[in-house]
């Protein structure tokens, strides 16, 4: 259970909401309404007043890095610090499986990052965010650079994470994707926020 309590993000009114295991919460709102800032605040990447609890433990009760190993923010444009993709992944046996799940071959890991396409990098970014099994995934436009086929594979991987009991908070401009994945929605508007529950279509 992830509980957000009176979290103050930018100019927004303090936000309170919950997301349980096996749940995917969609954050909706027009561009500039603070969706990314909200995800970053939950991952404790930006300072924000208020509380965020994971299984009853507030984020300040543990060091920042430990919190972020559990509550993982994945940017729409993943950044890379090494020359090759492999340097960015933990050595885990399931890496090949995760890559093939999103339609990538393992040989990509040893090519220079700069030679990969935007879509390949975005899928690598998603795999990188998942590879060390964080409890919460904060996905910011995870399929924005993908064609329909690759996006469908990425969605399957996200769905599988939800099935495994991870908590997913999703920001996406693709309303059909939200319908397919999310079972609850949070609307960010000037007037305030509202959470509505609906059954996932799938």
């Amino acid at each position: 259970m992830l509980r957000v309590d009176y979290l103050s993000v930018g100019g927004l009114a303090p936000l309170s909401f919950e997301a349980a295991a096996h749940e995917c919460l969609a954050i909706e709102g027009p561009s500039g309404s603070g969706k990314t800032r909200l995800l970053r605040a939950i991952a404790d990447l930006d300072a924000a007043a208020g509380y965020v609890y994971l299984e009853g433990v507030e984020r300040r009760e543990m060091p920042g890095p430990e919190w972020r190993r559990r509550v993982r923010y994945a940017s729409a444009e993943p950044a890379w610090w090494g020359a090759k993709a492999r340097e960015h992944f933990p050595a885990t046996a399931k890496l090949d499986r995760l890559l093939s799940a999103v339609g990538l071959e393992s040989v990509l890991l040893d090519r220079p990052i700069s030679e990969l396409s935007t879509g390949e990098r975005q899928r690598l970014g998603l795999v990188r965010a998942i590879a060390d099994d964080p409890r919460v995934l904060l996905l910011d436009e995870p399929t924005s650079a993908l064609d329909a086929q690759a996006a469908a594979l990425a969605e399957e991987l996200i769905k599988f994470q939800i099935l495994l009991g991870r908590i997913v908070i999703l920001v996406s401009h693709d309303s059909q994707q939200l319908t397919r994945l999310a079972n609850a929605r949070l609307q960010l508007t000037d007037a305030g926020t509202a959470r509505s529950r609906e059954s996932a279509a799938a």
């Binding site: 990447l45 890095p65 972020r68 190993r69 993982r72 923010y73 994945a74 950044a79 060390d132």
Partner: peptide, 22 residues
Amino acid sequence: RERAAIEARIALGATRFEAFAT
């Protein structure tokens, strides 16, 4: 210049010195 890469490492659970290593 490497703000995004440093933040990516931080988001993945790196400490500040790990994130700044490069």
